[in-house]
């Protein structure tokens, strides 16, 4: 299969997955037994204004129009980026709420994933190359750390380093006492607020990357080409970077796309613990307020973001690995 055909297949798969997620978001409220929509509407009657009720009716599929027509209207609205109106923060559009939180999640999850991937890969490579304490103590310890739920580690870290020692701020993403402007002072506040959540995410996920890279590098180290390179007396740095790293990092990159969904899920829960104003925090607000339009919009946005990231990793693999192009 040529490289382009392979890429087309992958992108086709993501497209089908995206369509499945969209359709599930449409079908679920209309399929669930016991009509939770009616129950929710009844509970909100009197509490929410008539416009909010109307918006909710539309989102929940309480409508007399035929299903096909509703589905068409749903898809049309999505193409315009219209995800409906939030019930708990009526009349703010869901898309606006999600957009406002997106930056914080991208910052936290992006930075943590990048640090964790680089650090874990480096540790894994070192463990495969040198062994020793890295292999016998650090590796198993990090794997053990990974056995705890992400958000539970976050609670522990916040308890000890936030409430106990007072080294880190306790909630939110910036200093409320500093005016939000592109100043150094405000930026420092953002860094300070992101530090502890990012550290817990890195701590929870770095063991997995290390293990993956170690396994991958081990198999490369055992090949004849590495033996020959060492026999030729090439400097260690060159053997590691040109012979081992280049080959070992590729299967590892594939794993990056796969693990992304899990890391994003972990980041969402971690945000909840730190009241970090990203998508995860918004998600828990939506669950508590039974704000179904917001909940659906969030799930859709997160799913599409993960699919897009997967597609990006596939394109990257194609560019980096000549074997996928030759095959």
């Amino acid at each position: 299969m040529s490289a382009l055909a392979w890429l087309a297949r992958r992108l086709g798969l993501y497209a089908v997955a995206a369509w499945a997620a969209l359709t599930l978001g449409f079908a679920l409220p209309r399929m669930v037994p016991g009509d939770p929509a009616a129950a929710l509407l009844a509970r909100l009657q009197g509490k929410a204004g008539p416009e909010a009720i109307a918006a909710l009716r539309a989102a929940l599929g309480v409508s007399d129009a035929p299903l096909v027509e509703q589905y068409g209207a749903y898809l049309l609205a999505l193409t315009r980026g219209d995800l409906g109106v939030s019930v708990s923060r009526f009349p703010t559009p869901v898309a606006e709420l999600i957009g406002g939180a997106l930056g914080w999640t991208l910052l936290l999850a992006g930075v943590s994933v990048a640090i964790s991937f680089v650090l874990g890969s480096a540790l894994g490579l070192a463990a495969a190359w040198r062994g020793g304490v890295l292999d016998t103590v650090v590796g198993p310890a990090l794997t053990l750390l990974g056995a705890f739920p992400y958000f539970w580690l976050a609670m522990g870290a916040l308890h000890v380093f936030g409430f106990g020692l007072g080294w880190f701020p306790l909630r939110h993403a910036w200093d409320t006492s500093v005016a939000p402007a592109p100043t150094l002072e405000f930026g420092w506040g953002v860094v300070r607020h992101a530090a502890l959540p990012a550290l817990t995410l890195v701590g929870a996920s770095v063991g997995g990357w290390m293990l993956g890279m170690r396994t991958s590098a081990r198999s490369i180290l055992a090949t004849d080409q590495v033996l020959l390179a060492r026999a030729r007396g090439l400097p260690t740095a060159r053997v590691v970077s040109a012979y081992v790293l280049r080959n070992a990092v590729l299967p590892h990159l594939t794993g990056f796309g796969m693990a992304l969904g899990f890391v994003v899920s972990g980041a969402l829960l971690t945000e909840v613990v730190f009241s970090y104003p990203g998508e995860g925090w918004l998600l828990v607000q939506a669950v508590r307020a039974q704000d179904y339009p917001l909940l659906q919009g969030l799930v859709l946005a997160i799913t599409l973001a993960v699919l897009a990231a997967n597609a990006l990793v596939d394109v990257l693999t194609l560019l980096v690995d000549p074997r996928t192009r030759a095959a």
Binding site: V16, A20, G25, F262, V264, I302, T303
Partner: peptide, 24 residues
């Protein structure tokens, strides 16, 4: 296989949240 691969690429937690929100 298509069904399997689609389920695999969809991130688990958001999907589970969507389902759990609608079930009792």
């Amino acid at each position: 296989s298509l069904l399997t691969n689609v389920t695999l690429v969809l991130p688990g937690l958001p999907l589970a949240v969507l389902l759990a929100a609608w079930l009792p």
